[in-house]
Every structure is written in structure tokens, then in C-alpha cells.
Amino acid sequence: MDKQATIQRLIEAVSKKKVSVAPDESLFDSGLLDSFALPDLVAALEQEYSIRIPDSDLNPRKFDTIERIEAYLDSLS
């Protein structure tokens, strides 16, 4: 499964909604993520990829779109 598909699956799991946004579309503006789903998504990403995202990287903008999340994860590797 490619990374965007995995991210989409995790977003659907934490938001309990079907993801129907483009990879560059805001997850917040679309209503998929809110303030409380965001920490859940971060925790899900950490578990999925066996990583620990440092608090200093926890900027909501980094997680605003599927593309940004993918870019952030790529920057870690």
C-alpha cells in the first residue's frame, strides 16, 4: 500500500468518516480533522510507522493535507 493510501486509511480511522478529499486539500477545512482528531492521527501515524514525532514538529500545518503528511514522513527517513 502506498503511503498516501495508508495515511488516508488512518485519517478514516480517527475521523470515522470516508476520506473524499484530494491529497492537497485541507483536512481541517473539509471537516475530516478537528482539534481532537489531530492528536489521534499523530498517535496513529507514530504507531503505523514505529516513529516518535517530536513535540517541536507538532505544528498543525504539517498535518493539514495528505500531501503534507506524506512530505513530513518522508523528511524523517
Binding site: 481541517f28 482539534s35 489531530l38 492528536p39 513535540d55 498543525p60
Partner: peptide, 13 residues
């Protein structure tokens, strides 16, 4: 208040 940032940081810190 940037609620997203507050909750994200608080939920970790």
C-alpha cells in the same frame, strides 16, 4: 487561541 496547536501540544505535554 490556535485551538489545534493548544490541544495538540497539551495532549502530548
Amino acid at each position: 487561541m490556535n485551538g489545534r496547536s493548544v490541544i495538540l501540544q497539551a495532549s502530548r505535554k
